[in-house]
Amino acid sequence: MKFCVCIKQVPDVTAPIQIRAGELSMDAGRVVLNAYDASAVEEALVLTADNDGEVDVVLIGPERATETIRKALAMGADRGAHLVVPEDTELDSAAVSQLLAGHFKDYSYDVILTGKQAQDTDAGLAGGMLAERLGLPYATNAVGLAIEGDQLVVTRQGDTGQEIIVLPTPCLVTCSNDMNNPRIPSLKGVMGAKKKPVDSAPVAEIPEASVRVLGYEPLHTREPGRFIEGEPAEQVAELVNVLELS
């Protein structure tokens, strides 16, 4: 089966970030492959290792995001496509899905994978939007994938249990990081990735975002808490007291 995984370069959310004049400000170097997308890449690699197949990746982002495509190639993906946009272009999920839909008009895949959400914005929309634009059956929040003939069996984490969904191909699935633990590229993988093809082309027209970010604000700070000291029995007595459990 031929897979294509949509990948995003995101700021490392565990790096120090501040708000300056309503804008987020962080060490620009700390960018990573979106963790949910890394799981999608991993799953595609596992599924194509046993069966025949290929894994492509596609990314929309500025020039420097090529390094994230290389990361996926170093993990083992075969080929990359880079839709290049100017630095600091604001794209919401709708705009992303529109550009990706344009991209997929020229290619044919059995399965398109996306992350369940981007780690920085937690929007979680682009996958469903893309499926609808392409007219593909889809499933979201997958924690497991298996190939059965020419069908895909998706284990989806729902609200109250895991839904086992069978999808015909072509289809689209959005992946949770609970699906697997993405491999760390080997040195050989990293070296090999340099020779793999990446088609890069500028985006001709940037779609207008339907949702604008007006600015960033700190979270409501919580009232400072306190430690309850003492031996366990004393700690428990005090806790039961302050929680007014009686």
Partner: peptide, 23 residues
């Protein structure tokens, strides 16, 4: 914002031409 809703929100937005503010 349940998993059931997250499953349909994006596709519904495209179908209805709506803008979405998720979660």
């Amino acid at each position: 914002s349940s998993e059931g809703v997250k499953d349909v929100l994006g596709a519904l937005a495209v179908r209805t031409g709506a803008a979405v503010l998720p979660d």
